[in-house]
Amino acid sequence: MKLKKNIAVSEAGLLFNPVTGESFSVNPIGTEILNLLREEKTDEQIRSAILAKYSTDNPTFEKDYQDFIGILSHNNLLENHEETKA
């Protein structure tokens, strides 16, 4: 799972897609996950990093993580999606 290279992520958690002009804001944990995706960490590595840092359990993480990835994918922000889609 990779975030598209051209997606800009600010420290405050604002994503900007320069192709479509869309902006999205994410919360601090979202920003952290985006940065891990940027570093091309695997799902497993991301899971370990978040579970080690926050007091949450694996099923809760898994559900929220998949939801988050689904939203990124839906908005065409991940590498395996066509650049041309609006």
Binding site: N6, P18, V19, T20, G21
Partner: peptide, 21 residues
């Protein structure tokens, strides 16, 4: 440019430069 804010006449009242090849 992508129109970000559109008036009821369809005019851009705000927009952002983009890089769509």
């Amino acid at each position: 440019m992508r129109k970000q804010y559109i008036t009821d006449k369809g005019k851009a009242w705000g927009g952002i430069s983009i890089s769509d090849e």
